[in-house]
């Protein structure tokens, strides 16, 4: 694939990087010619092995499994994973698990009730981790639409909850949401 301005953009392909479990954390081995990767002056020089890396999604809302930034512990970007599924299944699972851990966010499956009190709103919901009560400061700001059908809820503490499909919710939940989105 031709990339127009790949100034310093490094994609970690399975040939270049293999992800391993190091203790409780995710590590990475860079194989091949890493000196070739040190193009960008702003990033730290890359090492052949990292005991612990951090993952960040470049597009957490729109793309879950694509364009994942792999950073060293000082937040220097080692490279980007273009698509997790390009990696062998075992490694892909490791990456997914790590992402799941970092981006802990329950999936809301139903909205039970919405109460508004003194500028706060409390959403009582069912989620994949059980019943939750989500406190929101400014409802309109706290519900962020992604595309037509998805929704992120950010509560007063900055926790994120996802509704993967508004249309897939039951009618009563949809009616409750309708007032705010």
């Amino acid at each position: 694939m031709e990339i127009k301005y790949n100034n310093g953009v490094v994609y970690l392909t399975p040939e270049l990087a293999s992800f391993v479990k190091v203790g409780d954390f995710l590590g990475v081995d860079l194989t091949g010619d890493i000196s070739r990767l040190n193009e960008s002056a702003l990033d730290a020089p890359r090492l052949p092995h990292y005991d612990r890396v951090r993952l960040r999604r470049a597009f957490p809302f729109s793309l879950g499994d694509k364009y994942i930034s792999v950073l060293d512990f000082e937040q220097n970007e080692i490279g980007l994973i273009e698509d997790i599924s390009a990696f062998p299944e075992k490694q892909a699972q490791l990456i997914r698990n790590e992402l799941e851990r970092v981006y802990y966010s329950p999936r809301v499956t139903a909205i039970k009730s919405v109460k508004e009190r003194l500028g706060y709103a409390f959403f009582a919901v069912d989620s994949d981790v059980g019943a939750l009560e989500i406190p929101l400061r400014d409802v309109y700001r706290s519900l962020i639409r992604i595309g037509d059908d998805r929704l992120v809820i950010i509560d007063t503490d900055g926790n994120r909850y996802y509704i993967d499909s508004i249309k897939a919710l039951d009618k009563t939940s949809q009616k409750k949401l309708e007032l705010y989105v």
Binding site: Y5, N7, G8, S69
Partner: peptide, 18 residues
């Protein structure tokens, strides 16, 4: 997406955006 990232990287914006 890759073009956007590449443009941001070339503009020195990728690091702070991430």
């Amino acid at each position: 997406y890759d073009e956007v990232i590449a443009a941001a990287k070339a503009a020195g914006a990728h690091v702070f955006i991430m």
